[in-house]
Design a binder for these strands. Structure first.
Lengths: 248, 248
DNA sequence: CAGTGGTCTAGACCACGGT
DNA sequence: CCGTGGTCTAGACCACTGT
């Protein structure tokens, strides 16, 4: 006789909920549509609000939902592909570049960056901050670090000039260095308070951390740490266009 | 008179906790050491266990902690760098390859993969599963999809042969196709139940999803979807070794 | 078996966005 | 001002790991 399945593992409620909600998103909701609020959803599924929130959290992590305090929970559009490796593999700030310079300064780098640059922790480095937008929404914030010794032609930034102007001055000077190659690493992180603000997210929200090392003369001449919104971005690498394929 | 700072924004407790714990990890604990259990930590900081857990969750997300049910919370070693782009940019399964074939079959691909391959949703594709280890720990699980029509020399896998043998047969046949290029995308996801088991994690834990498209003859001949543990891995790309630098 | 982290509940109050 | 999601509490029970 047909025994029913063993049901060896009782699936957690929030996991089951996530499946139900995910299916509902596919079949009953349009992108941008606003879901019922959390209290009502929880009541409708017969669970505590905290349990429902656990399911929503996962769906948001996967880029299916977007939650905004004071507004509501909406169905997210598909993730946007953002090209990480520049076509020309050149210095940042080139012509075809959707980054926006914000400002620049001269200060000691974060403790995690100094060893990558091979400088003493207290040594001053130029720090350029930029942001990147896609479809009108901010997707990334970046800090670029260049030891002052690498850019002898650039003086300490003039506080009188505007932030973007200071940033552009450093990027311009960079372009004179002979870039030999670059090197990237991607890992998961969580947004610091300042980054979160730029990305229009809450502190601690998941981000993809892209660390780029720029190689000059066999050494690391600059390091960029870019913080991409993990919920809305898919980072793309490689040469699809070279063979005439649309981006993945 | 010196007014104290305005304290405009009351920092959430779990955020402050995370900072305290993070500092303690740096100064008072060694890698692998077991922390006090959650109930005691919560009591020690004077917060509810749920609040403490929120802080631990973030530290785990950042790869600083590792929690195992029935065991405890330990201080995690630094993330391991895993090279994602092969040196030769060749087909998978080459000589210098730390992937382990698991098994292979012939079935319809997942709904998300069929459009990437440009095949009808029901069309059978070879599916090769592999896992990757680093320092004796599993770091990734991968499914490689190749439309049956691309590999006319390969018959339906023989159920009598071992799983790894079936997988190697497909990988061997792949090597005869002239690979033109490849293309990658990285995004955040959460582990499905089967992947979680292979990665020794719980379902839903955060993973880095790497989608590779293999280009042959101007079209996509194969697609690989690899799932890397986000807590323990840093994905590396590029050519650091080409210029004689150690990996980031 | 005892002890760990994982799930779940039913409340409360807060910070923020729009009206 | 109201309604939203974000934070927090104080409990309870469950699933897993080791001994």
């Amino acid at each position: 006789m047909g025994t029913t399945q063993l049901e060896t593992v009782p699936e957690p409620k929030y996991w089951h909920l996530k499946t139900l909600l995910g299916d509902a998103l596919d079949s009953e909701f349009a992108v941008g549509e606003i879901l019922p609020n959390e209290r009502e959803l929880a009541a409708r599924f017969g669970v505590a609000r905290a349990t429902l929130r656990q399911a929503l959290e996962q769906l948001e992590l996967e880029g299916r939902l977007q939650r905004r305090r004071g507004v509501g929970t909406t169905v997210a559009p598909p993730r946007v592909g953002v090209a990480v490796a520049d076509a020309g593999h050149g210095w940042p700030g080139g012509a075809e570049d959707d980054w926006q310079p914000v400002d620049a300064g001269l200060a000691a780098p974060p403790a995690a960056v100094a060893p990558l640059l091979g400088v003493a922790p207290g040594e001053p480095v130029h720090t350029v901050r930029r942001t990147r937008s896609s479809h009108g929404r901010p997707v990334a914030a970046e800090s670029l670090y260049v030891p002052a010794a690498r850019l002898p032609g650039v003086e300490a930034p003039d506080p009188a000039s505007s932030g973007p102007a200071r940033a552009r001055a450093v990027l311009r000077a960079l372009r004179d260095l002979p870039l030999e190659g670059q090197d990237r690493a991607v890992e998961l992180g969580s947004a610091r308070a300042d980054e979160a603000k730029q990305l229009e997210r809450l502190p601690g929200s998941p981000v993809l951390l892209v660390t780029t090392r720029y190689i000059v003369d066999g050494g690391v001449a600059a390091v960029a740490v870019a913080t991409y919104r993990a919920d809305t971005c898919r980072l793309t690498f490689g040469d699809a266009d070279r063979v005439g394929l649309p981006a993945a």
